[in-house]
Write a protein that binds this DNA or RNA. Structure first.
Lengths: 190, 190
DNA sequence: GCCTGTGAATCCATTCACAGCT
DNA sequence: AGCTGTGAATGGATTCACAGGC
């Protein structure tokens, strides 16, 4: 989306927007009007303006504070991932229970804290989203810690279903799901 | 799903199956009958039998050969991930261009090979799926290499849209998509 | 009686087509 | 004339409800 700003155009039609991301122009308009009227009839959508509104809607106009729990390879990969940072998702704390890891400084500047500090650091650093990449058995316990510390959402990379209360949203990631898609499609072709 | 095998039950009803994964019982039946008649009227579905059929359908009854390209933190996390291995997705080769990494032995037993060996190792090891976790600029080049080497699917962890020919399926992973979901929901609540 | 398999009914998302604004 | 916003039409997926087999 940001790419569009780099073209010299100021205005874009639902037609072009649709072509750009592979959907029907009517779809684009329906979706957009669900949130408000951002276009001008007979003209189109102001790109900068539209982007601003979308950011508002997706709440990507603000900077989010995240923490990572569990610094195995995956945990590391996530904290160092600057794609997230670029989009406004900033890791401001890192937790683990391994005494060997605690105190270690990460490339991104964070120092690994013990899980026991979750309850104090989450409120202090205004952490809204907890990302978990722990061993499976720890996932539920860590989630509970995060929730009672006041986290509003949990991004779960552990292949385990995590139970939460209503005030906390969960998104699960399971790498094998998309692999199954691939496998299914490949299997169908031959 | 496998978890169900561990319960003492042998037979399960569409009702319970639905409850188990949060869908309507009729949905369960419709979906299953699409592929065949696996249940017994008045009784239910034999769990072991059903699992077998599903594995057949999803082609998870066979062992898949994968390779990883790009061994940063994420690449490491993926190859070492035994959740994939358990489900039949086995990494049988690892590639990188960094001369410092080439020749290194990974915990999983693989030795990192230079990208230049992709074209020979993919056919030799019968690799069907290539997983890419390289820097963004390399992603397209690596994909081309993989495709011409005969890979049937690409699992793309790089935040870049990769073009492929029809004979090759792509699945893209972007960690920020689910973060946007979280952010949107959290934003709506308060 | 119980639970599957399935046509019919319902719901929801996508698309069409046009009225209305610039 | 051009393009948005939107009711109406379409189509696909979900759910209902019951016939058929255990």
């Amino acid at each position: 989306m940001e790419e569009l700003l780099e073209t010299r155009e100021i205005i874009i039609s639902s037609e072009k927007l649709g072509a750009f991301c592979g959907v029907n122009p009517a779809q684009v308009r329906k979706d957009l009007t669900f949130f408000g009227e951002f276009g001008v009839r007979g003209v189109g959508y102001n790109i900068g303006n539209l982007l601003h509104h979308i950011q508002k809607i997706l709440a990507t106009d603000k900077e989010w504070h995240l923490c990572i729990v569990g610094l195995g390879n995956l945990g590391h990969a996530l904290v160092e991932n600057d794609n997230m940072r670029k989009r406004g998702y900033n890791f401001v704390a890192a937790f683990d229970i391994d005494p060997l890891k605690i105190g270690t400084k990460l490339d991104c500047g964070l120092t690994i804290e013990p899980n026991s500090r979750i309850s104090v650091l989450v409120p202090k650093l205004k952490i809204e989203i907890g990302v978990i990449a722990t061993p499976p058995l720890m996932a539920q316990g860590v989630s509970n810690l995060l929730m009672s510390a006041g986290v509003r959402g949990i991004y779960n990379f552990v292949p385990v279903q995590v139970r939460t209360d209503a005030c906390c949203v969960v998104e699960n990631v399971d790498f094998t799901v998309k692999l199954e898609n691939l496998a299914y499609h490949i299997g169908k072709i031959n």
